[in-house]
Design a protein around this nucleic acid. Structure first.
Lengths: 204, 204
DNA sequence: GAATATACATACATTGATGCATGATTAAAC
DNA sequence: GTTTAATCATGCATCAATGTATGTATATTC
């Protein structure tokens, strides 16, 4: 079988991405060979090198394929009516961790980002995407915190930047530890409680 | 130079561990070869394979050499006078993140654990150490939360287990994100604030 | 329908890393 | 002082993975 139709080609490309996603999230990026990816996708390595330059390119395509919850959260914040910034923050944070638990693809991506790859240098595209996404998200929620402060909904001692970094770290840490051993605690249930406690602590 | 004295041997062993620690935390575990470790230590690969079975054994020795802040925290909790469990919890949490920022060796180890290795399977000794240390630590602090609840220092709705997992995740997330880009925010300053907010939120 | 480009499979060349076996020299043990 | 054993260095054999070059059959284009 050679020279399939164009749709066939896109299908094999998708199969390759699916295979890579599964293998990377299970065995780690560096511990997965192109051979394994090809086998899992039912093709040979030749197919991979036709669609992607190398493993890094494969990973970049993998990451670009999915809209991370972090990105979605940003969109919704941008278009959201800011009737209640504090509730907005709570809701988005909870949806953030909820998507990690519910959506298998998001969970795989998060697992790769948090546990299955090595951040080897500063120009690593995985790390760059992770950090830039984080920073932008933090900036956005920081504005919500600021408007909450303006409305007097938070304690006067609260600094927006510190508050958002704490909140983001809490969510990150919850996901990190849950992915480490998902049976250890229920992410959404415990996470929602913890987020409530944290936000509650900011309101004096 | 061959057949050095016994103290010399222990010194080269320590140099190997130092070299591995530096290289692993900078370039990642799988992206560091035994050759590089040997070169940095000023010996050949033969020296490594004399002192350690393989890379995994090297890593295990590396981890076993340092008392992680998580372990130290446990000790101090065990012997600590429980005059005020809540303050105890706060103090230990803050010292936890403080040691990551101040102690270079602890920072290197934390960096390896959080960013520079892949958790490839369940029997991975790095992961096992990480998870078991976490679970034991959580169990200990959970008891402190329980005694705080008994004394009526926390809101009646607060569950000790959820509280401790949230606190631990917060600390973990702070360290994780700080190590990702240390210039982005000051760990101890922001971390202490965030921890205070969280604990504050538990006290109704 | 002839020409061309595409979508892969196949084969090969190269690299780098590992693990082991062996060697050399001297500290330690007796 | 002889023997033994430890501490490494050196060399080799092996292997897995990568990247690329080439082949091939079919879509697609004209």
């Amino acid at each position: 079988m050679v020279r399939r139709t164009k749709e066939d080609a896109m299908e094999t490309r998708a199969k390759l991405l699916d295979a890579a996603e599964a293998l990377f999230s299970e065995n780690g990026v560096t511990h997965t060979s192109m051979m394994q990816v090809a086998e899992k996708a039912g093709v040979t390595r030749g197919a991979i090198y036709h669609h992607f330059e190398n493993k890094m390119d494969l990973i970049e395509s993998l990451m670009g394929r999915v809209k991370l919850p972090i990105d979605e959260m940003r969109e919704q914040i941008a278009e959201g009516s800011e009737f209640d910034p504090l509730e907005e923050i709570k809701g988005r944070s909870k949806e953030f961790i909820s998507r990690v638990q519910e959506d298998p693809q998001v969970r795989s991506l998060a697992s790769i980002l948090l546990h299955k790859c090595e951040y080897i240098d500063e120009v690593n595209p995985i790390k760059l995407r992770h950090v830039s996404g984080r920073n932008e998200c933090i900036c956005d929620i920081e504005k919500l915190f600021e408007s909450a402060i303006e409305r007097g909904e938070l304690a006067t001692t609260v600094d927006a930047r510190i508050a958002v970094i704490g909140l983001f770290s809490l969510a990150d840490g919850l996901i990190y530890n849950w992915l480490l051993a998902p049976d250890y605690f229920p992410l959404v249930e415990y996470g929602n409680q913890a987020i409530d406690s944290y936000i509650n602590g900011l309101t004096r």
